[in-house]
Design a protein around this nucleic acid. Structure first.
Lengths: 257, 257
DNA sequence: TCTTGACCTTGACGCAGCGTCAGGGTTGCA
DNA sequence: TGCAACCCTGACGCTGCGTCAAGGTCAAGA
């Protein structure tokens, strides 16, 4: 007769595992000796090994019992199902590997490819890193709310980036951040924004974008995020208001009364 | 300001997940309104999305926090580690797929390939299925105790199977099972076993095998398993004892005094 | 005004498959 | 007789939430 540790050793499992199988009813409790120790015969070794074989093949313990008792047809069906699960888990993990490879590559924490491309383009053009990061977080919010509209949004932004004034705008803002805020610099930036926004409005671009961003409260949320991210935003919004522009993520020309 | 369900919806997670992240300290608890409801700003959306991005890439939640705060070098190291884990899990599952494919193919519940081949050969030779299954369970025990000696054991058995008397022996045992036990049949089987065992002993095969099975108590275990599996075994052991043979799995000629 | 339904809150159990104490009793050997 | 190496039961821990339970809150309709 065998003790539990001998049984476990022959089957290549831990004592704890054997007790677990008893507790779940997977392996029947054997006789006890006078001290209350479990005593096993050879059948238990065979049973335990059969259980382990299935378990090690990825069969959930809850299904091992039925599988051991199943006829060939059931068995084949169950095996097919388990194989499908394993394939799914492999696919998931392969997908995870791709994801973290992207993460390791750079910015792509939560961003669709287009945005990553756009941010890279900003860097190529020489936009200060701090501003690129600010844009990035903003786009995380945009992508969370309007994932399907991202290609359009980004196409507009890429086109805008080709206008030399855009780079000048970012550089001016960079100056504001690095060299300190002065009225002159604030006005310079605000004038430029107003000029470009005016043209976008004339082209109809603004209206189109503003229609796409059809969620008042979410736009407010993004604006509040911008305001929180740097005090400069609030100051610029004031200057823009003086020039008749309201909003931030979704900019609008105030009515001329 | 956002409620918890709005936050969750924007980030594409469940409300329960958000609360879980609060509970584990992964996402800071926000302000509460007068009713005790959590109120979120846009920063929380960005934070939550960043958390989910890592989590969905297979990063364990316990590590998400450090990864979000990590510099590039730490990040790269952690990513490499996670990638290694994913590769290991993929390998494990691929191995599982192979295992259950083998299980689906047939007998191989817990048996090395050689044994499966041997059992198949028995079937080809026309050995009754019931006896094949008996052999199978016995070999599960053998393989559990002496996995490294299995090729040798099985080579001996395969050679033995080529002796036409072996098939006759199995068929005689089959008769015993199907047609009922008679003294004549029992003696016929016992005589044949004794004859073949005597030759094996003369060739030295028995000594070699018995040396390999160098574990008294385990041999006793296998014998007790055989005895339990069918009453016929006990009867045959008696007839063998009358002919001067003891043991079963490990057969020995008693001393002639 | 009352009711309904959709939210929100905390607290607690459940899941898979054991690992790992804790706090005891037993056995076998020197 | 003492010690190491076993055995026992019971209970918590891990992962990432899902899923009640038992309430409180809020907005809208009858």
């Amino acid at each position: 007769m065998l003790t539990i540790s001998q049984l476990a050793a022959y089957a290549g499992v831990t004592v704890r595992a054997v007790r677990h199988y008893h507790a779940t009813g997977l392996l029947p409790e054997p006789e006890r000796d006078h001290a209350g120790y479990r005593r096993y015969d050879a059948k238990a070794v065979v049973e335990l090994i059969r259980i382990r074989t299935l378990a090690e093949a990825g069969v959930p313990l809850a299904r091992v019992q039925e599988l051991l008792a199943a006829d060939e047809e059931e068995f084949a069906g169950a095996v097919a199902e388990i194989d499908a699960r394993l394939r799914r888990e492999i696919r998931e993990r392969q997908e995870h590997r791709r994801q973290i490879a992207r993460l390791a590559a750079g910015d792509s924490l939560a961003l669709p490819d287009e945005v990553v491309g756009y941010l890279d383009r900003m860097r190529e053009k020489g936009v200060p890193e701090l501003l690129v990061e600010g844009e990035r977080d903003g786009w995380i919010l945009m992508a969370a709310r309007w994932p399907e509209k991202m290609p359009e949004f980004i196409a507009d932004k890429l086109a805008q980036l080709e206008d030399p004034r855009t780079l000048r705008l970012y550089l001016l803002i960079g100056d504001l951040l690095e060299k300190g805020v002065t009225d002159e610099r604030l006005d310079g930036v605000a004038d430029l924004i107003a000029e470009m926004a005016g043209e976008a409005a004339a082209r109809g671009d603004l209206d189109r974008q503003n229609e796409d961003m059809n969620d008042e409260s979410y736009v407010a949320l993004i604006d509040s995020f911008a305001s929180q991210s740097h005090p400069l935003v609030v100051q610029l919004q004031q200057r823009m208001a003086e020039r008749g522009w309201s909003g931030w993520a979704r900019m609008e020309k105030a009515e001329q009364p």
